[in-house]
Simulated scan of single mutants.
Amino acid sequence: MKYILKKISTLIITLFLVTIFTFTAFQVIPGDSVSSTLGMDASPEAIQALRHERGLDDPLVIRYGRWLGGVLKGDFGESTQYNMPVWNLLSTRLTVTIWLAAISIVLIFLFSFPIGILSAKKEDGFFDRLMVFLTQTFMAIPPFFLGMILTLVFGVCLKWFIPGNYVSFQEDKGKFFAYLIYPAIAMAIPKIAMTVKFLRSSIRRQMHFEYVRTAKSKGNSKRGILVKHVLKNACIPVITFLGMIIADVLAGSIIIEQVFNLPGMGRLLVVAIANRDYAVVQAVVLYIATIVVVINLLVDILYRVIDPRISKEGGAR
């Protein structure tokens, strides 16, 4: 329990520091939402009046305290571009981003573990060499480029979907998921390649340990040793790696959403930055940071559950 409380305390401190950095970073750079709203030709009087109305002429500490107090109550402020509460704006985009990430994560788990285990079993065989080639290739290809290839092949050539023709969840659930599968595949393929390589190496490393030779000498089959002993030990470091992969997928859909014209958090962030809608930018950045630190917390806890030998002081290593 002390270990979990310590990790939760670290999470809270980390998020608090993120709020400070996120807020101050967008307050000290030149320009603000007033110039985007009124334009370059606005009079100094009009600019000053709108700055006062929005509280932008208050000291930085007061503005931060006001913003943080609102965040703790679920109020992320008002979008100056859309003239609506930021949370209402985020909630309409979260459905797309969360489902996109969820489908990608399912694909990663569905393919990486069977392929990684099979590749480790067929050491130096044709399948293993083929997987080594494919994993090295797909690890080197960025998701946005894969997205462009999928759009060209399945959208333009085969016409399985209409590029840029997004269908909302409320409008048609089937078409919504059918459209999301292509960007999800583009996000998942490089992560699958990374996970397969990592899992394959972890299993191979375990197969050379003394406990495996002891199990073989007792007449256990290679399959039995793999299932009962090797996989559990091999998956311990893989959990940490998968935690990073999941956090990356949940937080890293920005470019893919641009490629496939998805109205998710990524596109919202890009548009908000362009229009200096800092309330929206701060909320999205805080969302990304929260996803990363929460996933790391869950990974640390799961790591300790699987391997109780992890020191209470040091956590997962």
Rank of each mutant, 00 (worst) to 15 (best):
L118G: 03
I236H: 02
T22E: 01
L89A: 03
I162H: 10
S35V: 10
T92S: 15
V153K: 08
K159A: 05
T135Y: 08
D57V: 12
F145W: 15
G264D: 01
T290F: 11
A42I: 03
R317C: 10
M139K: 13
G174N: 07
L226C: 00
S79V: 11
E171T: 15
K73R: 13
A215I: 09
R317K: 13
D124S: 07
S201K: 04
I225W: 00
A272V: 03
A188K: 00
F241P: 08
S253P: 01
D124C: 07
K218G: 01
G77Q: 02
L231E: 03
V227T: 08
V294R: 08
F161A: 04
L152R: 14
F16P: 10
Y179H: 07
S119Q: 03
V271L: 05
C157K: 05
T214R: 12
T22S: 15
R66V: 05
A178M: 11
I105L: 05
Y179D: 02
W87N: 14
D57I: 03
T137D: 02
R213G: 04
M84R: 09
S168I: 11
M207V: 10
I239Y: 00
K73Q: 13
E313L: 05
S36L: 09
L269E: 00
W160V: 10
Y166G: 15
S168Y: 14
L68M: 11
A186T: 05
A193F: 04
L152H: 12
D57Y: 04
I47L: 14
K312Y: 07
K197M: 07
S119G: 11
R63W: 01
P263D: 12
D32H: 10
